Simulated assay, not measured.
Amino acid sequence: MAELTIVHPPETAFGEEIEIPAAVRTIAAGRPLTPVWRNVVGGLTYRIGSEYFVKFAPASTDLPLAQEAERLRWAARYVRVPEVVASGSDETGVWLQTRAINGWSAVDGRWRPDPATAVTAIAEGLRELHTRVPVEECPFDWSVERRLAKSPRDLGDAHPQHRDLDIDVAWERATSPPPIDRLVVCHGDACAPNTLLGEDGRYLAHVDLAALGVADRWADLAIGSWSLSWNFGAGWEDLFFRAYGIDPDPERIAYYRLLWDLGS
């Protein structure tokens, strides 16, 4: 992977002037810095030249970049993910530097005229992750029990289909999960932007793996399919499930979408 560089960064930048963190300047060492992404809690992503990316989480946030670095290093044995170059922290925050991969996000404008290509790649990428990464060797847990233990029990930022649900009712449903279908190593954030496609439009790599861990495959499939409507509009779920090679399971889909909205 060392020779790969990404030449097609995501199209969304910060949208406002933000001071570059000192740690990021140090890592860049005079190389050009391009702002790529700012998330809702203040985490920043920059491209360094054409060879690297660096994520920075201010100390005021709880973004799990150290956790992500650990998971990336482990997952790289089995599937293509960004290579960790360096990670660290100081009193200002935490950072993660990775080597770039030559590909496009599944939600890049390149695929907007042809969302079927992106949807197929997302599904095939998840299938590869779920089949190639050995469950018995994975030291990370993304089980329902672990997620419920960390849940804030809040639906304030939930999807409209859950936002008006009584929290006690929601919690009762969440604490009564369906039987496990198949344990796999899940991505943990299988939303469409976290799959990279190659020049040929096929699945290339996974990114943003801070929550990677063992769970029922429907924990990924429910969210991966749900995110398609957010990025490509309605009507793509059938293709997603066909490309993955599975029939939709309404009960498990509904359960894992509610669990997601409960913030766990």
Results as ranks from 00 to 15, higher is better:
residue 210 A to F: 11
residue 196 L to E: 02
residue 251 E to K: 04
residue 213 G to Y: 06
residue 232 F to W: 12
residue 237 E to K: 14
residue 224 G to N: 09
residue 235 G to C: 10
residue 193 P to R: 10
residue 181 D to F: 09
residue 219 A to V: 10
residue 218 W to E: 03
residue 249 D to H: 13
residue 230 W to E: 10
residue 230 W to D: 08
residue 188 G to E: 03
residue 205 A to Q: 09
residue 229 S to K: 10
residue 190 A to K: 05
residue 209 L to F: 04
residue 225 S to Y: 02
residue 184 V to I: 12
residue 176 S to C: 11
residue 192 A to M: 03
residue 208 D to G: 01
residue 240 F to E: 03
residue 199 E to F: 02
residue 206 H to K: 00
residue 237 E to M: 05
residue 201 G to Q: 08
residue 181 D to G: 13
residue 236 W to T: 08
residue 234 A to E: 15
residue 217 R to G: 04
residue 249 D to S: 06
residue 214 V to Q: 08
residue 223 I to V: 15
residue 223 I to Y: 12
residue 176 S to I: 00
residue 191 C to F: 01
residue 245 G to E: 14
residue 198 G to I: 01
residue 200 D to M: 02
residue 228 L to E: 07
residue 202 R to P: 00
residue 194 N to A: 04
residue 194 N to T: 11
residue 186 C to Q: 09
residue 231 N to F: 15
residue 197 L to N: 10
residue 252 R to D: 09
residue 226 W to Q: 06
residue 226 W to R: 11
residue 203 Y to F: 15
residue 196 L to P: 07
residue 179 P to N: 01
residue 235 G to P: 11
residue 248 P to D: 10
residue 212 L to R: 00
residue 187 H to F: 04
residue 251 E to Q: 10
residue 244 Y to T: 13
residue 178 P to S: 07
residue 221 L to Q: 02
residue 244 Y to G: 12
residue 202 R to Q: 09
residue 202 R to D: 00
residue 244 Y to M: 12
residue 187 H to C: 03
residue 205 A to W: 02
residue 242 R to Y: 10
residue 201 G to K: 01
residue 186 C to P: 10
residue 224 G to L: 10
residue 187 H to K: 05
residue 235 G to T: 13
residue 234 A to S: 14
residue 236 W to F: 15
residue 228 L to D: 06
residue 244 Y to H: 14
residue 241 F to L: 04
residue 223 I to N: 04
residue 221 L to C: 07
residue 197 L to F: 02
residue 199 E to K: 07
residue 185 V to K: 14
residue 206 H to N: 06
residue 196 L to M: 12
residue 186 C to I: 08
residue 198 G to N: 05
residue 244 Y to I: 13
residue 180 I to V: 15
residue 204 L to C: 07
residue 192 A to S: 11
residue 217 R to C: 12
residue 246 I to S: 14
residue 197 L to I: 04
residue 207 V to G: 01
residue 235 G to L: 08
residue 221 L to T: 01
residue 212 L to S: 10
residue 223 I to F: 11
residue 210 A to Y: 11
residue 215 A to Y: 01
residue 243 A to F: 12
residue 239 L to K: 10
residue 214 V to C: 11
residue 229 S to F: 01
residue 220 D to K: 05
residue 225 S to E: 05
residue 226 W to N: 05
residue 232 F to H: 11
residue 182 R to I: 01
residue 245 G to S: 11
residue 185 V to C: 14
residue 201 G to D: 06
residue 220 D to W: 12
residue 224 G to E: 07
residue 207 V to R: 02
residue 201 G to A: 08
residue 208 D to T: 00
residue 177 P to G: 01
residue 222 A to S: 14
residue 221 L to V: 03
residue 240 F to I: 03
residue 207 V to M: 08
residue 178 P to M: 08
residue 177 P to A: 04
